[in-house]
Design a protein around this nucleic acid. Structure first.
Length: 269
DNA sequence: ATGTCACAAACTTTGTGA
């Protein structure tokens, strides 16, 4: 099974590229963020022509998430348990069971700057995510994928010194990711598309993509059953190129859910 | 150059958010 996550920065503006990418990459499930699209305005018919069912959660202007699946889409949930708002809850999380795997597509609040009310909202939102996922852990493999707006380590930004006094790298944000890992979730780090860094986001401005001055903020956190099934993970840097791209690249994960897990105690064949 | 986008309101430009 192939699972992907992509912040498309408006599904309306990106629809031709999204449809082309679905055909080219052929994922079984895609987690989308920043769809900027009301649920009833989502281009579900167009993706259905490619075989995907849609679970969308959104409003017209900001935020918005969706799950597209061609391997089933069951037990859909929109929003988190006790989800905080700014001031009202926003469309930042949708979960569903696809092909026997419990998946969440999330768009974590940006935070704007440390000390800003939006930063406190970001931390509260991450705690609500933790609590929601904790209650769902169980026999099914589970993963949460999306734009976390947090770089897990200094190696996940082009220049750690450039981020002094900035969000995305502060200890409280990273500790919030640590509390997700403390649930037993592992960070599925993708292969880079080019160069040494598996960056997933590059600012539109100042030729940042061309200079590979990016960040790894689009993350895949999976439980033990999910991470044990991972056979490959990569950043699709090609999707960031050319005319009219999103500022994020997709992260693609290949799973072998049906294959027997390697037995570490087995002697070499 | 705080350099690019996308969206929507109230217009052909500006505010907001990233």
């Amino acid at each position: 099974m192939r699972v992907a996550t992509w912040n498309v920065n408006s599904v309306g503006a990106r629809l031709p590229r999204l449809l082309g990418w679905l055909q080219e990459a052929a994922p079984d499930v895609v987690c989308l963020q920043e769809t900027k699209c009301a649920a009833d305005a989502f281009p579900a018919e167009q993706v259905a022509e490619l075989g995907y069912a849609t679970a969308a959660h959104g409003t017209s202007r900001w935020n918005g998430v969706a799950l597209l699946s061609r391997v089933g889409l069951e037990d859909v949930r929109r929003g988190l348990d006790d989800e905080p708002g700014f001031p009202d809850p926003e469309a930042r999380a949708v979960g569903a069971t696809c092909g026997g795997v419990r998946l969440w597509s999330v768009y974590v609040p940006n935070g704007r700057e440390p000390g800003h009310p939006h930063y406190a909202y970001k931390l509260a939102w991450l705690e609500a995510l933790r609590a929601t996922l904790a209650a769902e852990l169980g026999p099914r493999p589970l993963a949460v994928l999306g734009d976390f707006n947090v770089a897990p380590t200094d190696a996940d930004v082009w220049d750690a010194a450039a981020f002094a006094q900035s969000t995305h790298v502060t200890p409280p944000e990273r500790e919030a990711l640590g509390r997700l890992r403390a649930l037993g979730l592992g960070d599925v780090v993708p292969r880079p598309g080019k160069g040494p860094h598996p960056f997933t986001y590059w600012d539109y401005r100042a030729g940042m993509f061309h200079k590979d001055l990016g960040m790894r903020i689009d993350l895949v956190y999976g439980d033990g059953a999910f991470t044990a099934a991972v056979r490959d993970a990569y950043v699709d840097r090609e999707a960031r190129k050319g005319k009219g791209p999103s500022d994020h690249a997709p992260v693609v994960v290949d799973l072998a859910l049906d294959a027997p897990l390697p037995d570490p105690a087995a002697p070499p064949a």
